[in-house]
Design a binder for these strands. Sequence first.
DNA 1: TAAAAAATATGTTTTTTAACATAAAAAAAG
DNA 2: CTTTTTTTATGTTAAAAAACATATTTTTTA
Lengths: 233, 233
Amino acid sequence: MLENECFVNTDFYPQWQVWQLLNEEERTLLQENSIFRKYDKNQAIYKEGELPEYLICIVRGKAMIRKEGFGGRNQIMRMIKPVEMCGYRAFFAEENYVTEAIACEPTVACLVPSEVIQRLIHRNVELACYFVKLLAVDLGESDVHTVSLTQKHIRGRLADALLFLQQKYGYESDGETLNIAISREDLANLSNMTTSNAIRTLSQFANEDIVAIQGRKIKIKQPDLLRKIAHLG
Amino acid sequence: MLENECFVNTDFYPQWQVWQLLNEEERTLLQENSIFRKYDKNQAIYKEGELPEYLICIVRGKAMIRKEGFGGRNQIMRMIKPVEMCGYRAFFAEENYVTEAIACEPTVACLVPSEVIQRLIHRNVELACYFVKLLAVDLGESDVHTVSLTQKHIRGRLADALLFLQQKYGYESDGETLNIAISREDLANLSNMTTSNAIRTLSQFANEDIVAIQGRKIKIKQPDLLRKIAHLG
DNA sequence: TAAAAAATATGTTTTTTAACATAAAAAAAG
DNA sequence: CTTTTTTTATGTTAAAAAACATATTTTTTA
């Protein structure tokens, strides 16, 4: 067993949508072949250029899917929460990864070897259709994200990023603090701007009382205003 | 029969990869339910916000998949050639279209009603897996395209666009003229810049003898140099 | 074919954003 | 707990790209 493998409570399986599509026999095949791995904050789950060996399901924690750009800049393409998957795109495309996945906080993943998934989707058409839908939704989000990144101004892009984080991770129990701690640099990478501009623009939002900042924790004080800024571009 | 419906030589079917995955019975179902439609240059094949009714296969001509942005700007997301499909993303995601498809030249499409495709993929797992792969490849291309659009400078983006057109449509018989006539505006929409900048930058490339311009026909004279410019960002 | 409209070319100005610089604050490491 | 490193804040400058303007060419349409 590799040192970052671990055992976890397998209660997570029923939460995984894939699990719901499998019969008893298929579930056994999946469970007996899947392994669990722990990742530290900022540890890579997979790297750009590698060949995908596993389908990865995030059980605990958070991950970001990002792509290296030019001059040390990265673009965060997607973010993952429990119980969502990553790594399946490259695997299904039969390509090496074009992105990398990084744990945003201590994270646990369930890894299923590619051959097992391949076998499962070829014998279970509902599972295949589930992945068709998943990829189709991903591609639509990607199209919308691309136009936001390329055509909106800095404030609109940052507003989009904050609303995206809200939608993905929700609020803490106070109903306004984003349920993720994110550095200004990552916020910049999510919204296609330099770190300085993320810092500056977030400060402006705080001055305008649209958000409140407590380090890497962000309170969304006026979501409607944020939506308006996002909508204007 | 709608006025833009038409009959075409059905020899195209064997060229369609989907056709190759079907048995006799499935082929009959597909063929008996598919209709053909003609589109003029610049005519919409489908529009943003509409509900997808058909899977669309381009039989003759060319189409661009684009998304409306802000201030009258569009982003061309993908381009289609015979025999490739479009319109399947929204359909599989069970969403309205987030993009529109426009015929770039007189185009003929084969339309298959959504219910028919739905029935086919649920009884043919190989077909379902084919769409999984197709969408996975699309999403990978989208990721790469996004980073090009957001991080490369104007020259790099235009170089990428020209190389993309070369790869997609190839050369004419002279071995260097792109097999598509494209306006500067569309080139701008493909590479995320204003029309003025597409005009100016293409002129620069012509001055540097990297390309030669004859109206909307572009000769790639130094593809290696173009690749170098694209690679530098 | 002539007139009108649209697209292209090219120069100039303005806006936006990146890059750079420095200090303060916060987080991480020993 | 102290030192070092990293992150954040904020001001200034430089670069990139958009916006604007006008002339010319090409395409479309009557």
